[in-house]
């Protein structure tokens, strides 16, 4: 879309215009969501029922957390296809340990998060040490991490009855009317949004994504930044995996298979440019909510669920095409201004 996010306060008028366009992606998405919600409410009034809204936002919160991690990676011009396997692996292992050992739940969660971090670090290490494309490496780890789940599961599944009493309750509980998961997601999104905007690391992430050579000239250690992005992506996929386990209670070896498309779609729809260097984690989170809304609309309007996959695909294509159009227009504006 635009590189303004990488150098805020560019000052000149085209830069200001670019900034306005960049912000408009989040606003556009919110507007589309409001229209879609209004439409669904007219056709199916139970959309606005608190139960339904809680469920939509709770599920979207899980995807938003994973999408924040994916956004960090995409900002550095990379992609992580293995997030869904990390989610499934952490969901299963946490459930598996909880049913076999009588350990405090918090400790098992920490164990899960540590493992998730290691999986992310493994991706980052292979990619930065051997200087190989992330798409290929994470296509490989997508299947390797999923394979580990099959080894651990060995044909079994974790049922809610195996887990500590009330394990799934947080999925339906609310604080001041807001579902717990939404609060967790909001905290994570806020922390990362602030970190990207105001910390050294955040600015380096944008620098590496905008122009790796320039970044290394000004002293950014690109490899470390990319490694950190993948590590955090793994960690956040672990958080999403734990929440997934709490939400569904029943965990299979195939849990969360195929959700990487939804996560990447959320990131791209949320305005994070796949070419790196531009976009926000807030956008990615809004993108996740938007896709969750579409999912819910299909359910409520009694449309076939088979459409979902096709819609995700179309949404990805639409979002990247819009990016290209905006980029083209920006270039024309910049050229006009230069003349």
């Amino acid at each position: 879309m635009t590189a303004t996010r990488a150098r805020p306060g560019g000052g000149s008028r085209p830069a200001a215009l670019l900034g306005a366009l960049a912000r408009s992606r989040e606003l556009t998405l919110v507007a589309v969501m409001l229209v879609l919600s209004a439409f669904v409410t007219l056709r199916a009034p139970n959309f606005l029922a608190p139960d339904n809204l809680d469920q939509v936002t709770t599920l979207a919160a899980i995807f938003a957390i994973a999408a924040v991690g994916e956004a960090l990676v995409v900002l550095t011009r990379n992609v992580d296809l293995s997030v869904e396997s990390t989610m499934g692996l952490i969901a299963f292992i946490v459930g598996d340990v909880l049913r076999q050992q009588h350990l405090p739940v918090a400790e098992v969660w920490l164990l899960g998060l540590a493992l998730a971090l290691v999986l992310g670090m493994a991706n980052g290490a292979i990619i930065t040490l051997f200087k190989v494309p992330s798409i290929v490496v994470t296509l490989g780890t997508l299947s390797i991490y999923r394979g580990i789940v099959f080894v651990v599961a060995n044909g079994s599944q974790v049922s809610l009855s195996d887990l500590p009493a009330g394990y799934s309750n947080p999925a339906t509980e609310t604080l001041a009317g807001i579902p717990y998961f939404v609060i967790v997601a909001a905290v994570i999104v806020t922390v990362f949004a602030l970190a990207l905007r105001y910390t050294h690391f955040g600015r380096q992430l944008y620098a590496v994504g905008s122009d790796p050579e320039a970044a290394s000239i000004i002293g950014v250690r690109n490899g470390w930044v990319v490694f950190a992005a993948f590590s955090l992506c793994g960690l956040l996929a672990g958080v999403a995996g734990i929440l997934w386990g709490i939400e569904f209670g029943t965990i299979y070896a195939t849990s969360a298979s195929g959700v990487v498309l939804q996560i990447v779609a959320a990131v791209v729809v949320g305005g994070v440019a796949i070419a790196g260097g531009s976009g926000t984690v807030v956008g990615a989170a809004i993108g996740a909510l938007f896709l969750g809304l579409i999912n819910n609309a299909l359910l409520l309007l009694l449309l076939p669920q088979e459409l979902l996959q096709a819609i995700y695909g179309a949404v990805i294509l639409l979002a990247v095409s819009t990016d290209a159009v905006v980029r083209l227009r920006n270039r024309r504006v910049a050229q006009a201004a230069a003349r």
């Binding site: 096709a310 695909g313 990247v320």
Partner: peptide, 27 residues
Amino acid sequence: LLVARAGLPSLVVTLGTLALFRGLAQV
């Protein structure tokens, strides 16, 4: 067309059609 004419990265375009084609098959 999306990759060569519109200049979009093939990685995302074909990730999109990966979902789109499978979705159409399911429809």
